[in-house]
């Protein structure tokens, strides 16, 4: 309940927010199942304490899929214990969390390869082969 600088803080207190977010995730999963509509919750926009965040992470758990991304800093994506609910954590400077969200979808957009990158990859291989043949 106390920080190193002697000041007290509420970051260690559970406020019940995690349960509310869990309920919201549940509603989003129902919508995804019924209509295919994807949605997401920006965790940074919510007044979650550190304890709330930890509780939410524990409630959702970790499922079958986990990915680490190395792009302008680290990112982690994992499917929670509730298929279709993904936890996406992007880190920025000094590994601090730059953005964090729960995406309710079949597969997060960030894991898909963009068509432009596929085209570029094909071009690179073609150039590589041409260089090899020369």
């Amino acid at each position: 309940m106390s920080r190193g600088n002697g000041t007290n803080c509420l970051d260690d207190q559970v406020t019940g927010m995690a349960l509310s977010v869990l309920a919201e995730v549940g509603r989003m999963l129902e919508t995804l199942a019924d209509s295919g509509r994807e949605d997401a919750i920006d965790l940074r926009s919510l007044p979650l304490t550190d304890a709330d965040r930890a509780e939410l992470e524990q409630m959702l758990g970790r499922g079958e899929v986990r990915a680490e991304l190395d792009l302008a800093g680290e990112s982690e994506v994992w499917e929670t214990n509730y298929p279709g609910a993904w936890w996406i954590r992007h880190r920025g400077a000094e590994r601090k969390i730059a953005s964090e969200e729960i995406a309710v979808c079949r597969i997060p957009e960030i894991l898909k390869t963009h068509p432009v990158d596929i085209e570029t990859a094909a071009l690179r291989i073609r150039n590589e082969l041409e260089t090899t043949h020369e």
Binding site: A72, G73, A98, S99, E101, E109, H114
Partner: peptide, 15 residues
Amino acid sequence: SRRTFLKYASYTASI
């Protein structure tokens, strides 16, 4: 990569 754009966009949307 475009993933990097998307990561930046997620960060921008959040802030």
